[in-house]
Each structure stands twice: as C-alpha cells, then as structure tokens.
Amino acid sequence: MRNLLRYMLIALLAYTAHGAVAADDRELLAAVGARPAAGLLVAYELQDVPQDQLRRIEIAVAANGDFHEKQFFKTAENPVAWQSKPMHYVHYSSDMLTASLPGMAAEYTQQPVPNYKDAVPGPVQWGLCPWPVAARLCQWLLDAPDLEIVDFGKSIRASSVRSMLALEADRNGRLLAVTRGDLTIQDTITFRFEYDDANLGAPARMSQIISAMPARSRQERRFNWKATSCAELAASPASVKFDPVELGASKYDPESGDVIHPIRGLLYNRNEVERQAVEASWQHKARPWAFGGLGIVVVAAALYGYRKIRQG
C-alpha cells in the first residue's frame, strides 16, 4: 500500500517538475496500476455529536472499484449498541448498483449502471476509502488536459475542474485528501485523512467536509470520523458482496411495485400500499366530518319523529 502511494506521489511530483508527463513517468504510473492491493475494509465512527446522532460507516472498496458502504445508527432506546441492520447501504459490483430506499433500509432497489466506476470522478463511496483505487484516481488526473498541481512544500494538490476531482498527498506518499464536485463554485465533498505515525498504513481519522449549494445557498458541514478498524480484503472478488438475507432486505421493483423478500417471496406491492395510504389518509381526515354529518341526520330524524308522534 505504501509503495503504491509513493509511486503515485512520485508521478505527481515528476509532472510538477517538468510541466508535462515524461515517458519514464508514464511507465512508472503503469507500474502503479499493475500492482493494486486486493482492497480494504475500513470502519469509522462519527465523533463530536450527541449520543442519539452517532453513526458508524463500514466501507469496503476492492481494487477493481467494486464497493459496499453500510451505515449503522444507535437508537434512543438503546444508545449503547449499534443496530444490527444498517440504516443505509449502497453496493456496486458486476455493473449493478444496489441502494437502500430512503427512510426504509429494509428495501432496496437494484439497477444496472454499466461503467459506473469508469466515469470520472468515480463513485462518491471511493472517497471514504480511496487507497485501493488511488492509482486510478491519479491516472484520471494525469489524463486530464486541465490538470493543475500546486506545491505546498510539505504536500501537493493535484486538481482538474473538468474531472471534478482533486487529490492531496504529503511527501511521505500518503493520501491526505480527496475532493470531488464542482471545484469552480466549491460545490464539493472533501474526504480528509489523518494518520498515526505508529500505523502508517491505516488511516486514524477522516473528516467529511461538505460544501454544497442547494438552491444556490451554500451549506457547509463537517463530520469528524475516527477509524476503528482497517483490514485488507481477501483477494477474491466476492469479498465485496451484497447479501440481502444478512441485511434482512427485500428488493423493490420500481416497474411493478412488487417488494420481494429473498426467502419469503412477494411481501406486498408498494404501488398498492401507496394508493391505500392516500385513501386511508383521506378517510382519516374526512372521518370527523362524516361522524358530524351522520349525527345531524340522526338528530334531525329523531326530532322529525318526535314531532310526528306529538302531532299524531
């Protein structure tokens, strides 16, 4: 891993020194791409937040770019233990993008997205664990016609507006930050890493800096994460796998609306549930008026009957 990062840094420095990529440097980069690690599995826990907002991320990224991101929460009822099932997950392998539904991780959608990991700047999940794909990110920058490299002395920053990507690395060959998004208006997310000297190969902390412009009004947020584990993935491609049974998740088909559990089969049709939800909500709102109307009819009938009896 360190060698990989070192080669990447050397290549970037060479580019900085000569203003163009020399043939030797291209060979060097080719060597970087030729020796990827199998992949990494890193776990982070969110810091500096109230107990009921704690989150844990598990991110696995394979050298071929496949990834699996899971986010776990704690509940107010049990603030000690993490929930057994993730509340958010995204998985990509074999050209299939799998993602949990917002507001309901018990369901997921799955759709073919060919070349999802070949489009610059790559999936955002790579930013959580960029080391297995660092060579690819570096190559994208070297191929960019608008590559800019700034030398800060202790570190360098390579960026390409067109690629919507920027990398920072220190003189020890360690990746310091990955930024992706619109660099011209700073509509970006940055993943910044810190390392403990005692453990050079693994990150110690990660910061997510979100500088977004929803509705043209800037929102900036920073999340500080502590790395709690870092392990190399097994060489098998199946090491980054999606298991709906393990997640207790059912597949939602947007076309038919069917929600299908991997073991129990069809659970229900979401389109039908949504239709019933609209009706149920309407009935709930109309119910007091219906009670009132019915009451008026009953009272009117009673008065009418009473009057008839008295007249009779």
Partner: peptide, 8 residues
C-alpha cells in the same frame, strides 16, 4: 436520485 452516500 440513488446511490449517493448519506450525510445526515
């Protein structure tokens, strides 16, 4: 949109 990472 789908496939993004949750950020709170």
């Amino acid at each position: 949109c789908t496939g993004g990472t949750y950020v709170g």
